[in-house]
Simulated scan of single mutants.
Amino acid sequence: MNFTSLGSGSKGNATLIQAGETLVLVDCGFGLKETEARLAARGIRAEQLSAILVTHEHSDHLKGAPMLARRYNLPIHTTHGTARSFKSPVPVFEPINVHRRFTIGNLDIEPVTVPHDAREPSQFVFHHNGFQLGLLTDLGSITPLVTQAYRECQALLLECNHDPQMLADGPYPPSLKRRVGGDWGHLSNQQAARLLAEVNHGRLQHLMISHISEHNNHPDLAMAALAPVLDGVERTRVHTLSQDEGCDWITLQHA
């Protein structure tokens, strides 16, 4: 199983996951031309995509998905709640039942419900050939369901959105500060660390620090918060995802 981030942050998110001939784009928060350019930078043409998955309807995750689907006749998999935000029909809408796994080609996909201020948000754990890859951003608190779902991942793209002090001292209006820092907002560095303390470090090959706020966090602060709970995880396997570049292709390997 291979994966790459096309960008991660409040201005746009997109992740590619490949298993054999199956190639899935998770979220598409960039415009059509920008998405095509970022795909090309990873050696991918949109025609090669098997499907698009959308976690929720916020624009930094949904923006380009319907346009990309219409141009290349791609199916979109998302919840009924998220689909309510489609402004016009898409070629194929495949509804996700958050209580059931589903399959796209070689990928077995486990939806995970999360507390976030969206209509019916879902994050995902991808299974293939004994591998588990977890995508976990855009949630305001860690539930027992979340902890259980992501415990055995070999790769984890984990939100470290904000540092609480930077958020408190930052430029956002009070209402937005309450939203971001609330139980239905985004994970702080410390919340991410608490989840990371619960995962099986013996299986974790790659940790991708994701969805870092440009105004309310810094990669060094995120790393400092996570460092005490990273026993057994090589620092060379901890990566920070950027808004502009994401990361190059990473391959999961059997031990």
Score class of each variant (00 low, 15 high):
residue 47 E to D: 15
residue 28 C to T: 14
residue 102 F to R: 07
residue 88 S to Y: 08
residue 19 A to I: 06
residue 55 T to P: 08
residue 124 F to P: 04
residue 31 G to V: 00
residue 102 F to D: 05
residue 123 Q to V: 04
residue 86 F to P: 08
residue 25 L to N: 01
residue 70 R to F: 03
residue 101 R to F: 02
residue 31 G to D: 14
residue 72 Y to N: 07
residue 127 H to Y: 09
residue 71 R to F: 05
residue 47 E to F: 01
residue 121 P to R: 06
residue 114 V to Y: 09
residue 53 L to P: 12
residue 56 H to K: 02
residue 42 R to S: 03
residue 23 L to G: 06
residue 102 F to H: 13
residue 131 F to R: 01
residue 36 E to G: 06
residue 53 L to W: 09
residue 73 N to G: 09
residue 100 R to W: 04
residue 21 E to N: 15
residue 122 S to R: 05
residue 67 M to H: 10
residue 79 T to W: 11
residue 30 F to I: 02
residue 37 A to Q: 14
residue 31 G to P: 00
residue 96 I to G: 02
residue 66 P to L: 11
residue 50 S to D: 14
residue 20 G to Y: 12
residue 104 I to P: 02
residue 55 T to G: 05
residue 78 T to S: 12
residue 109 I to V: 14
residue 107 L to W: 14
residue 82 T to I: 07
residue 133 L to F: 15
residue 91 P to K: 10
residue 108 D to T: 12
residue 40 A to M: 10
residue 75 P to R: 01
residue 89 P to K: 04
residue 86 F to V: 03
residue 50 S to N: 07
residue 63 K to L: 15
residue 114 V to G: 12
residue 67 M to G: 06
residue 55 T to Q: 15
residue 103 T to W: 04
residue 23 L to I: 08
residue 27 D to G: 03
residue 112 V to R: 02
residue 52 I to T: 02
residue 77 H to P: 04
residue 82 T to L: 04
residue 55 T to F: 02
residue 34 E to G: 09
residue 121 P to L: 03
residue 62 L to T: 01
residue 63 K to C: 07
residue 116 H to V: 02
residue 39 L to D: 00
residue 131 F to L: 00
residue 127 H to A: 00
residue 19 A to Y: 07
residue 132 Q to D: 12
residue 35 T to R: 09
residue 49 L to D: 01
residue 33 K to E: 15
residue 33 K to Y: 02
residue 118 A to V: 03
residue 111 P to H: 03
residue 81 G to T: 08
residue 125 V to C: 06
residue 77 H to C: 13
residue 47 E to R: 14
residue 110 E to H: 10
residue 29 G to Y: 12
residue 129 N to M: 02
residue 128 H to Y: 13
residue 92 V to E: 12
residue 112 V to M: 04
residue 79 T to L: 01
residue 104 I to R: 03
residue 77 H to E: 03
residue 32 L to F: 14
residue 65 A to N: 03
residue 70 R to N: 15
residue 93 F to R: 13
residue 114 V to P: 07
residue 115 P to G: 09
residue 79 T to F: 06
residue 75 P to H: 10
residue 102 F to S: 01
residue 120 E to W: 01
residue 116 H to F: 15
residue 91 P to C: 09
residue 32 L to Q: 08
residue 25 L to H: 05
residue 36 E to L: 15
residue 110 E to D: 09
residue 30 F to N: 02
residue 117 D to G: 11
residue 26 V to Q: 15
residue 88 S to K: 14
residue 107 L to P: 11
residue 78 T to F: 06
residue 23 L to K: 14
residue 22 T to L: 08
residue 107 L to H: 08
residue 19 A to L: 06
residue 81 G to Q: 01
residue 67 M to F: 07
residue 58 H to V: 06
residue 40 A to V: 12
residue 79 T to V: 07
residue 76 I to P: 09
residue 110 E to Y: 04
residue 79 T to A: 06
residue 21 E to Y: 09
residue 55 T to E: 05
residue 91 P to T: 14
residue 94 E to M: 15
residue 53 L to N: 10
residue 78 T to M: 14
residue 76 I to K: 09
residue 90 V to Q: 04
